[in-house]
Nucleic acid binder design. Structure first.
Lengths: 212, 212
DNA sequence: GTCAATGGCGAATGTGGTTCGCTTTTAATG
DNA sequence: CATTAAAAGCGAACCACATTCGCCATTGAC
């Protein structure tokens, strides 16, 4: 009983947005430019998306899932636990969080500028963290589960931190100390990873008591 | 030979900005509101600051330094290494990064939306990281220096991550899994902290070789 | 073929950072 | 004390952008 949304127009807009976010980041990309690139008027963009931030999530979501899945393949192909962890951390922090095309920066900018009215489901973040946990668990099948989960969570926080600092552009993500620091921590941790958390905590307490 | 900047006007503007950033965050605060609160015109604000982001840094810088110094005092008052580390991590992530008045969110928003033209000196971040390193080193005087530095850096990244997510969550930072995860990692790490990094990395390699 | 829902779009709206000229003040100078 | 000019102070633009409005064109259902 009425005109129907053009699948092609939707694709045009989405692809234009993807291309522009990649080149100029979230803040550097305007609805006008997206519309022009898609061959339509700015106002028409709002027929397909209800806000700029919704476009950003629509573009970022499949990209991140793709990159994480790709990373899983690369990690699984490694033969040693050490290689698996190196590949995981480097892939996550350098290739994805430090992505020079600015896609992760797009997310960070979107998140930082989101208003309360921009309802954002944390489903993507949860999904990502679970995948990271899976990779870590497969690399260290005998690791204490609580520790492995902690590692995954800290990796996620570091992911955000690296992406945020990417905007300061003083240093390339590849040269950043972050990767080395995380790997240092991981490798230091590994040798004690098979013990339960409580025992380690008690041990520290005892160490301290003995030395003071 | 000319009119001189009023110290009082400068203070008015800075205090108004501080109060408004605290209430409404960086993005929710406008130059107009700052000017009105300071009892002057929006354009006159630019006599004292060259941009909005410069105001944000001017307000955030002394606040963060104060909080970090205060935290140092609290950490130094702890008697055991475990207490010192708990106090450090909780203070950093809950009290400062998770600050409910939104000051750290102000910084994150400012950083995320900064343009290349907004020259930002990373001096404050360096200073903070050095202070954190100092606290960690004092808690673990026998720790491997490279590992301690890695810990400090990862803590900084987690700081950014927590602050960023603060904008998304309805939940309190205190309930966040971040603190527990970092402490888990720290305490697990501690028992092996006295060995040099290279030995640990080799050990992991050998572990893997032996188990495969 | 008629109808009405909806796509499409040019124009307008609102907001907010920043800049422009003009006026006023004031510190140095003679 | 009068003169001067640099700089504060400020109202009015300017500009960039996200978003909305109102009108026209299209199209699918009956």
């Amino acid at each position: 009983m009425a005109r129907v949304k053009s699948e092609k127009m939707f694709e045009n807009i989405t692809l234009a947005a993807e291309s522009l976010f990649e080149k100029h980041g979230y803040i550097g990309t305007t609805i006008s430019r997206i519309a022009k690139e898609a061959g339509t008027a700015p106002s028409n963009v709002y027929v397909y998306y209800s806000s700029k931030i919704e476009i950003a999530f629509a573009v970022f979501d499949p990209w991140l899932r793709e990159r994480i899945s790709e990373l899983e393949t690369r990690v699984a192909a490694c033969t040693s636990a050490r290689d698996q962890l190196s590949t995981l951390v480097e892939g996550l922090l350098i290739d994805i969080a430090g992505d020079e095309t600015g896609r992760t920066l797009t997310l960070v900018q979107a998140l930082a500028t989101a208003r309360k009215s921009d309802e954002y489901s944390p489903a993507l973040l949860h999904w990502t963290e679970e995948r990271i946990l899976g990779m870590i668990s497969r690399a260290l099948p005998d690791g204490d589960p609580a520790l492995l989960r902690s590692l995954a969570h800290v990796l996620m926080l570091a992911f955000d931190g690296v992406a945020l600092r990417q905007n300061l552009r003083r240093t390339n993500a590849g040269e950043d100390y972050a990767v080395q620091s995380i790997l240092n921590l991981l490798f230091f941790t590994l040798s004690s990873a098979r013990a339960p958390a409580q025992r380690r905590m008690d041990e520290i307490g005892r160490d301290e008591a003995a030395s003071s």
